[in-house]
Simulated scan of single mutants.
Amino acid sequence: MPTKLNIDIQFASPTIEVALAKTASSMLMKKWVRAATDHSGLLTLRFVNAAEGKKLNFAFRKKNYATNVLTFPYDLSKNSLTADIIFCLPVIQKEAKNQNKTLKAHLAHLIVHGCLHAQAYDHESQKDAVKMEGLEVKILQNLGFPNPYLDQ
């Protein structure tokens, strides 16, 4: 029986929605999410500005800066998950430029990365990082993107 994953995409402002639409449609982002999980459930992707990103990072991680992606997993079972994944578009845009990556490739990587976090993958230890990064590389290659961990 196929899984039913509901994917909700939210934008903190019309400006963010317009900027993002130039890089990836909602349909394309949902394709990336489905490539990174075979669970059913609900995933919410929210794209925010730097002020909201900084506020959330401080409130939940006590870090006083905006970060590229924050994942909030609420429920995870063998077949189902529920999570919110927050993306700070200005940080992602700056990182892509600084890393000489296309915004599309960097965004795809971070969406896959956030989805793996929602499924309890982590990169706190070297062993876990190798496992998670290997999955990211495989998923992204299947989607036609280069290895995000190689210098471009």
Rank of each mutant, 00 (worst) to 15 (best):
M1S: 09
T3H: 14
L5N: 04
N6A: 14
N6M: 09
N6L: 09
D8Q: 13
Q10N: 08
F11N: 01
F11R: 00
P14V: 06
P14R: 13
I16H: 02
V18A: 14
A19I: 05
A24H: 03
M27A: 15
L28A: 09
V33C: 10
R34P: 12
A35D: 07
A36I: 12
D38E: 15
S40L: 11
L42M: 03
T44K: 15
R46G: 02
V48Y: 00
A50G: 05
A50P: 01
E52C: 02
L56I: 12
N57V: 03
F58M: 13
A59V: 10
A59H: 11
K62R: 10
K62V: 01
N68P: 11
T71V: 12
Y74W: 14
L81C: 01
T82G: 07
I85A: 02
I86L: 11
I86G: 04
F87V: 01
F87R: 08
V91C: 03
I92T: 05
K94D: 11
K94N: 14
A96L: 13
T102R: 05
L103H: 04
L103D: 00
A108Y: 09
A108P: 02
L110D: 04
L110Y: 11
I111E: 01
C115G: 04
C115T: 13
Q119G: 01
E124Q: 12
S125G: 04
D128W: 09
D128A: 10
K131F: 00
M132F: 07
L135V: 01
L135S: 05
E136M: 15
L140P: 06
F145E: 12
F145D: 08
P146E: 09
P148V: 06
L150V: 14
Q152D: 13
